[in-house]
């Protein structure tokens, strides 16, 4: 079984972010960068599936050369090799989905495993777009994956409960929070990762015609809410809610 997993380099979820001078990006100086947490869960799931069924895990990232850090980290967890598509500019979701599709067509994985969303863009659209381009079935927001022959049985976190789907391989699966707990890389794992193959390619070498269908005009910090009032007792709270706010 071959599993391709995407790993995006994102700002740390605890970072205090500021808008840069262009007004369309965030300042990255001094901001800690991490692998998108959902992608780490996807890497972990891929490793578990391959430990059970045999095969190979390949990790893919698109972005600056610095994303090799996140790819090496995934390889330290146990992924076999990495691919980095070097792209200087910020790309929109549709373009990213075209790049991933092209790599998937070259690599021909049985499963393309991706995080359900990246914690920076929060768009939650790329995996589904890739599935459609490839003509694959999909199971998004997975909280359990079991391989049964030519099918993947996936329990997914749907609205109002848990939905179970069976998806024919090859397919696209996206990880939700509770799919697993990613392992920590071991020291031997980290040493081994340094020697694992990492194929760095320029975006232009893919020969794709990428035209942005979405652009960011402006980023802004939402207005800061005034910190609230600390009340002395429960009685005061009840009267505020009833008489001032009229919500009870």
């Amino acid at each position: 079984m071959k599993i391709l997993v995407t790993v995006k380099r994102v700002t740390d979820y605890e970072a205090k972010l500021q808008i840069d001078s262009s007004g369309t990006g965030v300042k990255l100086d001094g901001v800690n960068m991490i692998a998108n947490p959902f992608d780490e869960i996807a890497v972990e799931e891929a490793l578990r599936l391959v430990e059970k069924h045999g095969g190979e895990v390949c990790v893919l990232s698109i972005g600056s050369g610095e994303a090799t850090t996140q790819l090496r980290a995934a390889m330290a967890m146990g992924a076999d090799r990495g691919i980095l598509i070097k792209a200087a500019d910020k790309l929109d979701g549709v373009s990213i989905s075209k790049i991933i599709t092209q790599i998937a067509q070259e690599e021909k994985p049985d499963i393309l495993l991706m995080g359900k969303q990246s914690i920076d863009d929060d768009s939650q659209q790329i995996a589904q777009m890739v599935a459609e381009r490839l003509g694959f079935g999909q199971a998004t927001q997975a909280n359990k994956v079991v391989i049964e022959g030519e099918w993947a049985m996936v329990v997914r976190e749907a609205d109002g409960g848990l939905e179970t789907l069976s998806v024919k391989l090859p397919c696209v699966i996206t990880s939700d929070l509770r799919l697993n707990e990613p392992r920590y890389a071991s020291l031997p794992g980290i040493m081994k990762a340094k020697k694992k193959p990492l194929d760095e390619r320029e975006l232009a070498s893919l020969g794709l015609d990428l035209k942005a269908s979405l652009s960011i005009l402006k980023l802004e910090l939402p207005p800061k809410k005034q910190a609230g009032e600390i009340l002395p007792d429960v009685a005061t709270l009840v009267s505020k809610l009833r008489e001032v706010e009229k919500v009870i």
């Binding site: 914690i119 929060d122 960011i216 005009l217 402006k218 980023l219 910090l221």
Partner: peptide, 9 residues
């Protein structure tokens, strides 16, 4: 975006 820390146009 960014968990609502930033609003994008």
């Amino acid at each position: 975006m960014w968990a609502g820390d930033i609003t994008g146009t």
